[in-house]
């Protein structure tokens, strides 16, 4: 028998302290998770108890009013919807197009990785900076004014990096042997992209796009920079109309709660509407992912 290095007695003595430590760490990780959940729960309960009783058909359908009991958020809901009408096509076309170029067409090299890295960096730029960009470019230089088109394009720029990165990852996840099979039969690159790679990457692309939209819907800072009001303006009917949006409505009501206490409740009610909207969008994302998901 060779020399024994494991002293059974010593190992046994240390064992209980090792197991205790193990339990301790597990507890710490659980506590971290719990912290987030508790804070979120407190927030939700607070908002719901304050705002839920103010949500009714009149509140959802009415024009804005300085009289808290008559104020409605239809204008903000329409404004947010119109914003999405601009954001969705712009981000999908430009975002997915960029991702396809970077992943499938661009030569892999320094320039390509430089661009890819900077797109990731852009995802981290504070949203208020995008607001300044939108103000300079769309509102002033192109003289759109603070209309839906300017707001939508600003938000589209803001979430574009998210869509690009998500789409790139989805395209990268398509197994190479599928495109090989297609090329092997004499398909051109575009045929392969269109018929094999894009369908396989679609769930990932759509999930990323909808998550990006959720982000755009809730953004407030860039809109404040653009000078989006929450005033008594007519319902927007097209992308060249002035507008307000749900997060702006929340923002102004919260600020003005010091003048009219009722506004705080209206803000809470609007937050509920916004949360429900976000929840719906995320559910759609999950449904789409499950419906189109393919196994390789």
């Amino acid at each position: 028998m060779t020399t024994k290095y494991m002293d059974a007695e010593l190992v046994g003595k240390r064992m209980s302290s090792r197991v205790r430590k193990n339990t301790g760490w597990k507890g710490l990780f659980f506590a971290s998770t719990l912290f987030g959940l508790v804070v979120l729960a407190v927030l939700l309960i607070r908002i719901f108890t304050q705002g839920i009783e103010y949500i009714n058909i009149d509140f959802l359908m009415n024009h804005l009013s300085t009289d808290a009991s008559r104020a409605g958020i239809m204008g903000a809901i329409l404004g947010t919807a119109w914003l999405m009408v601009v954001v969705i096509p712009v981000t999908m076309v430009i975002g997915v197009g960029t991702a396809i170029y970077l992943e499938l067409y661009a030569k892999k090299g320094k320039l390509q990785s430089f661009i890819a890295t900077n797109i990731s960096n852009l995802a981290g730029v504070p949203s208020i900076v995008y607001g300044l960009l939108g103000l300079t470019l769309f509102v002033r230089a192109l003289e759109f004014g603070n209309v839906i088109l300017a707001g939508g394009l600003t938000l589209a720029l803001l979430v574009l990096p998210i869509v690009i990165v998500a789409a790139q990852e989805a395209l990268r996840a398509v197994p190479g042997n599928l495109s090989e099979a297609s090329y092997g039969m004499g398909a051109t690159k575009w045929q392969t992209v269109r018929r094999i790679i894009l369908p396989a990457a679609l769930p990932g692309i759509l999930t990323g796009a909808i998550l990006a939209l959720s982000r755009a819907i809730g953004e407030t800072a860039p809109l404040t920079v653009l000078g989006i009001p929450a005033l008594l303006i007519p319902f927007p009917e097209g992308i060249f109309d002035t507008f307000t949006a749900l997060p702006m409505q929340i923002y102004y009501w919260t600020i003005d709660a010091s003048l009219v206490a009722e506004y705080a409740n209206l803000a809470a009610a609007t937050i509920i509407v916004l949360l429900v909207l976000l929840f719906l969008l995320n559910s759609i994302a999950i449904l789409i992912r499950n419906k189109f998901q393919q196994r390789y």
């Binding site: 197994p175 042997n177 090989e180 099979a181 092997g184 393919q294």
Partner: peptide, 12 residues
């Protein structure tokens, strides 16, 4: 010139 690969690669 057709090709058959090491790992069967049918399309999904």
């Amino acid at each position: 010139v057709g090709m058959v690969f090491q790992k069967a690669n049918p399309f999904p």
